[in-house]
Design a protein around this nucleic acid. Structure first.
Lengths: 173, 173
DNA sequence: CAAATGTCAGTGGTACTGAGATGA
DNA sequence: CTCATCTCAGTATCACTGACATTT
């Protein structure tokens, strides 16, 4: 729970404005996102540590948990996790050594591999998710409407920053 | 601009809901924050790299830039940057070797040190900030009202997750 | 005395670059 | 042939733990 006595972003915005830098709103948004990420990470890492998992490990396990067959090609994992392919190799290596995932040949592309959950991995993934859910992912004090609004606004930020394209999935003709 | 064809968070929420895990809104918020952070980081790192700065370096320089005297005690930097004291030592070491900051004795506590910008550091910090501002920090496509709303909502998240206390600075009697 | 500040040495983990083997 | 997929070796950076000297 560490905890500063007051919101550092607010003081920061005041100094920024006083100095006349301009673009204080985008600055405040970026600072808020960075700090929220760090705070939530710190909070949820305590839970992950009790399962001996790091956040990248968790992200990979969860990415597998919600797929038919619990199997995803390495290259897709790289995109979903927004990391370099060699980082995926590294993460999969570690999880495979622990028996939580395994590599299997891609059914139709002999260059590619899919990563799939083992029974142990699926069990672990489910228990970790349950633990995080029970803690509400560390998010507290917002109404459902606020949470929805937040997701929508962050979607705009991600879209504007180029995370993905496709503002809306054009309905078929 | 790399870029996925569509928003991965949306697909994720659908899978999550279909599996009946519950707490899908907090999950979506956390996932959105993590991805927004990563996307903005990737985007702004290109700018930082042109100044040979990493993000931790940037954070420290900017923390100094907006203070009277451009000097801040190490311990405060540790809190502001949300990192371990030894990480601050490390970051300051690197920036000091490059002549961008320097350590000076704390005026009233002989245990403590303050870190202050050199002339070169102040100049560098200003130019980096200007470059980031010119790019709007990678944030595009939101109105001022939306940006304000986003800052307010993220403040609630940070407060709820224990980043700081003090819901509102109780006005003096 | 106990608590706070900062450093040092060492560790573990992440994510990258560049090069290369294999297959579409 | 070109491009995609994945791995390996090497590198940089970060953030931490534990121990310590100094000062409050």
């Amino acid at each position: 729970m560490s905890g500063l006595p007051s919101d550092p972003v607010e003081g920061f915005v005041e100094d920024w404005r006083a100095a006349g830098w301009g673009e204080e709103l985008p600055m405040a948004v970026v600072a808020s996102i960075m700090r929220a990420e760090r705070t939530l990470l710190n909070r949820n890492e305590a839970t992950l540590r009790s399962f001996d998992l790091t956040f990248p490990h968790y992200k990979l396990l969860v990415a597998l948990l919600f797929r038919p067959g619990n199997a995803v090609p390495m290259s897709i994992l790289s995109e979903l996790m927004m990391v370099h392919p060699t980082s995926v190799t590294n993460t999969v290596d570690r999880l495979e050594r622990r028996g939580l995932v395994r590599r299997a040949p891609h059914p139709r592309d002999r260059r590619a591999l899919v990563v799939e959950l083992t029974d142990d991995g699926r069990d672990t993934a489910r228990r970790v998710v349950k633990a995080l859910v029970d803690d509400g992912f560390g998010v507290q004090g917002l109404t459902d409407a606020e949470l929805r609004s937040l997701v929508a606004l962050l979607r705009k930020v991600r879209l504007g920053a180029g995370e993905f394209t496709d503002p809306e999935p054009a309905p078929g003709p």
